Amino acid sequence: MFRKILLCLALTAAGSIFAQNNPIFKGWYADPEGIVFDNQYWVFPTYSAPYNKQVFFDAFSSPDLVHWTKHEKVLDSSAVKWAHRAMWAPSIIKQNGKYFFFFGANDIQNNEQEGGIGVAVANKPGGPYKDYLGKPLIDKFYNGAQPIDQFAFRDADGKVYLIYGGWGHCNIAKLKDDFTGFDKFDDGDTFKEITPKGYVEGPFMFIRNGKYYFMWSEGGWTGPDYCVAYAIADSPLGPWKRIGKILQQDPKIATGAGHHSVIKVPNKDEYYIVYHRRPLGETDANSRETCIERMYFDKDGFIKPVTITNEGVKANPLKK
């Protein structure tokens, strides 16, 4: 009997260890973009460090959301001559058989400084990526939006939009099919502001059941009020009326939960939210780690509040 008790205790302990899947990989990483390419889950995060050390991006791939492989320096500043610090918030999309990697660089504070939003290209998701244009794609402030936190969104008709912006303003622009610039909207505008109430940074958009879900981060990225909120509309242009928060810190688990993305499992109505947070006891603003939770909807299509956990998610292999 004593041996059976010991065995049960050992199995319980082992189960507890293996259940701790958050963070999903080691190291300080933030602003994660999750996406599926070629039957693999991918996460492309910001390397979380002082701005002058943020000169490269690592990526991570997984067959099942639990076991992750690190791909080191899929893009770094040696391949982007105009980028020299604060390389942030990647967004990756496949177009015309190639993979395009949008990123912010240099944390520009005005229109005279060099930097903004760039784009790199590679033949496979894990890179290596090279600068596509030799200059920023967006290097100015439009509608008050700092050119950071870009997200490449593919609409149902295949058209790709770039949604971006810091400093409390969010813009949307229609990318040319070759991603060398932008097409104008019918009214002649290139950059349209779609800022909802409470928006700070970190935009993300997806479509479910014909509805457009627009999500963003609120609060200060170094503080306990950092969180994710959302709105729903019938068009990528809105209008967007804030519905409420769906992701925020839990003082028993972690603080500063925000700047997320969403992974949809192909051919299934299953969604995961990928986000960063700060472990309890960490006071350094850059001590951020990447985590994943399931994201659910109610019968009316509203997103249910997400519970942040140490357990994370169970394995969900992508079958070939």
Rank of each mutant, 00 (worst) to 15 (best):
N123H: 10
E270P: 00
Q109W: 12
A105V: 06
K252N: 07
A231Y: 01
Y226P: 04
K174S: 07
F206N: 09
P23H: 13
V228M: 11
I273M: 03
S16R: 13
V55Q: 02
L247N: 02
P239I: 01
K299S: 15
A233I: 01
I108V: 13
N171R: 11
A152I: 06
I108M: 09
W88L: 05
N52A: 07
L280K: 02
D38T: 03
A14S: 14
N143P: 11
D284T: 10
S16K: 11
G118E: 12
M215N: 15
G158A: 09
I24T: 13
L65M: 05
M1Q: 09
R3N: 12
V74N: 03
P224L: 12
F204D: 11
G281Y: 04
Y272M: 01
A10F: 15
W167A: 13
K211H: 12
K184W: 04
Y51H: 06
G15C: 15
P236K: 01
I35F: 14
F191H: 10
N39E: 06
A156G: 02
L280S: 03
Q248V: 00
Y41P: 05
T190V: 15
Y41W: 03
A83E: 04
K319T: 12
Y41L: 01
A49Y: 01
V262C: 00
F102V: 11
P136C: 12
K174E: 14
H276P: 02
F191W: 08
N106K: 10
Y29A: 05
M87V: 05
I292L: 09
A145T: 06
I207W: 09
W68D: 01
F57I: 00
R3I: 10
M87C: 10
L162G: 03
I93K: 12
L11R: 08
D225V: 05
K70E: 03
V200F: 13
T290A: 08
T307S: 14
T307P: 03
F60W: 06
V262Y: 04
I148T: 07
E218V: 09
S62M: 00
